[in-house]
């Protein structure tokens, strides 16, 4: 989009491969009908409130607090998922130990496990009378039905993003560079922090952003384990459902549009990170 218009530039470049019109037309039609039209309807509905109205919804204390919970906890969860996900990715690619392949397969579980199933499982596990929850209660931590519960659910769903974006890059690291660094006298720590980690940063950021975006919107697994208490453990998607139950379609749409805008910015950030990384390191 950003390239300067060249003289006589065609919409697309010439090729012998057929089917451009058909496939692009079909793609655009599907995209339009399934994604864009409904989203446009949402935006139109929210726009009915006017900018002042949307602002009023966004700054309503309860909405603001729900957005804070969703975004705040999701940030923390994505951070945790990125740190531990980084360790998991490193361990899975660099070390050999019994059960490595199994552990590797397990990482994708949150992709495949329905969120409602994850929700009831996490709730029964971390409830005060659950297997883990009862242990946590002994040391004074209430997990389920508090923001901690939301955090746990968000880490669960964000983890695979954090691991899977970093893993292929760790596998691609050229060990000779590390050897060179070591032979040149750098300590292992210095090699890791100066040679190994920097090229991984864009991938870690991408994984972080994906986990974050997913966590912000998550609903199914969280409602079972969050306390759903206004101002404390009420998440933005739940507030949309509540607004709907109150027949407040505009309010629900306004919250949805706010979330959508932030998600879109996150996606944009991911693309920028990737573009930057392509320039800086020559790969995504």
């Amino acid at each position: 989009m950003s390239e300067a218009p060249r003289p006589k530039r065609r919409f697309r470049q010439r090729t012998v491969i057929p089917g451009f019109g058909l496939t692009l037309g079909y793609t655009l039609t599907c995209l339009g009908v399934i994604v864009l039209l409904p989203l446009a309807t949402l935006v139109a509905k929210a726009a009915g409130l006017g900018p002042a109205g949307i602002w009023a919804v966004a700054t309503d204390p309860r909405v603001a607090s729900a957005l804070r919970v969703s975004f705040g906890v999701s940030l923390l969860a994505a951070l945790t998922a990125s740190i531990f996900g980084g360790i998991v990715a490193w361990v899975l690619t660099r070390y050999d130990f019994p059960g490595r392949k199994l552990a590797d397969a397990v990482v994708d579980l949150p992709f495949a496990l329905p969120t409602a199933v994850a929700g009831i499982a996490l709730a029964s596990l971390y409830a005060p009378n659950g297997a883990v929850g009862s242990q946590l209660a002994k040391i004074g931590i209430e997990a389920a039905y508090t923001p901690v519960g939301i955090f746990i659910a968000m880490v669960f769903i964000g983890l695979p993003f954090a691991v899977r974006t970093v893993q292929p890059l760790i596998a691609e690291i050229d060990k000779e560079v590390e050897e060179a660094s070591a032979i040149l006298g750098a300590s292992r720590i210095a090699t890791l922090t100066r040679v190994v980690l920097p090229p991984l940063i864009p991938a870690v950021l991408t994984g972080f952003a994906l986990a974050f975006a997913r966590g912000v919107g998550e609903y199914g697994s969280i409602i079972f384990i969050a306390g759903n208490l206004p101002y404390v453990s009420e998440i933005a998607p739940l507030l949309i459902v509540i607004k709907l139950s109150e027949f407040d379609y505009e309010g629900a749409s306004a919250i949805a549009v706010i979330m959508l805008a932030i998600s879109f910015v996150t996606l944009l950030a991911i693309n920028l990170i990737q573009a930057w990384s392509r320039r800086r390191f020559g790969y995504v």
Binding site: L39, L210, A213, Y219, A236, V241, A256
Partner: peptide, 22 residues
């Protein structure tokens, strides 16, 4: 176009339902 195709990934499931209600 790629970004738009990606969009549903980052839309909250609740919003995905809401838009069809609308």
């Amino acid at each position: 176009l790629v970004t738009l195709i990606d969009l549903p990934f980052s839309v909250s499931p609740v919003v995905s339902g809401l838009i069809y209600v609308l």
